[in-house]
């Protein structure tokens, strides 16, 4: 089975978020980048596990981005992907990224496309649905469990306040939520082997831009905490009722 895993590069979770060029661009100065946790911990690892369980097939990691993303792609290879592809373009919108990935998947006989449920920077959750539609295949989203039997998958999808257990045949796209796999740390052997695994760079296909971020802003911060007397909880209840009006 050919398993394609979409990996995205995101700022590290404690990164300071600032903007430049009149608040029209994210200021990457001093920002550490990591592989998007949902892609790395769950989507990638589940694909590798599946290949191990089947004893056959390959795991291909795909990323859309500039050459500086190669460090994140090498990590995916170190964790256990067999080969990698980077589409050499700026990851400017969900539509752009989806079309690059779908284009590759179509030409390479992919059975399952894995990706994280969202990236922790733009929090969009749109790419999975877009790839599915471009490939005209089912989309199992927010998956916390996947079991394969032949070409049939049984997938548990998280929904608000519960879960749905669904059955689907390959090919399909699956987005990973917490629980789909256990995080793996690359070992020395993996890191050494990653250097010798193929990382192919391909050119992007052209995409019309349907939406763009015109500008960024920073949300208003809280005006300051009101510290209350621990002995007087009636006062907190009164404030929640009369001032905050939440109870």
């Amino acid at each position: 089975m050919n398993l394609l895993v979409c990996i995205s590069k995101t700022p590290e979770t404690t990164a300071k978020i600032a903007f430049k060029e009149n608040d029209t661009q994210f200021d990457t100065d001093g920002v550490q980048f990591i592989m998007n946790p949902y892609d790395e911990w769950y989507a990638l690892v589940r694909a590798i596990e599946l290949k191990e369980q089947l004893g056959t097939g390959k795991v291909i990691a795909i990323n859309v981005g500039p050459p500086s993303n190669d460090i994140v792609i090498r990590k995916a290879l170190a964790i256990g992907a067999d080969e990698a592809v980077r589409v050499n373009g700026e990851e400017k919108s969900a539509t752009f990224v989806s079309k690059q990935i779908a284009n590759y998947a179509k030409e390479n006989n992919i059975d399952i496309v894995f990706l994280g449920k969202e990236t922790i920077d733009y929090n969009g959750s749109l790419v999975g649905g877009m790839i599915s539609e471009l490939l005209d295949v089912p989309f199992l989203s927010y998956a916390s469990n996947l079991e394969m039997e032949g070409d049939t998958a049984t997938v548990t999808c998280d929904i608000e306040g519960g879960e749905e257990i669904l059955k689907v045949k390959t090919p399909f796209v699956i987005s990973a939520a917490k629980g789909l796999a256990e995080q793996r740390i690359p070992n020395m052997r993996g890191i050494m082997m990653a250097k010798r695994k193929p990382l192919v760079v391909i050119d992007p296909v052209e995409v019309t831009e349907n939406e763009a971020i015109a500008s960024y802003s920073i949300p208003d911060s809280k005006s300051g905490v009101k510290l209350l007397d621990p002995e007087n909880m009636d006062e907190l209840v009164r404030l929640l009722h009369e001032e905050a009006k939440v109870i």
Binding site: A94, G129, M130, F139
Partner: peptide, 9 residues
């Protein structure tokens, strides 16, 4: 959110 990407395409 799962529908939105599909419908956009």
């Amino acid at each position: 959110k799962s529908l939105a990407g599909r419908i956009a395409i």
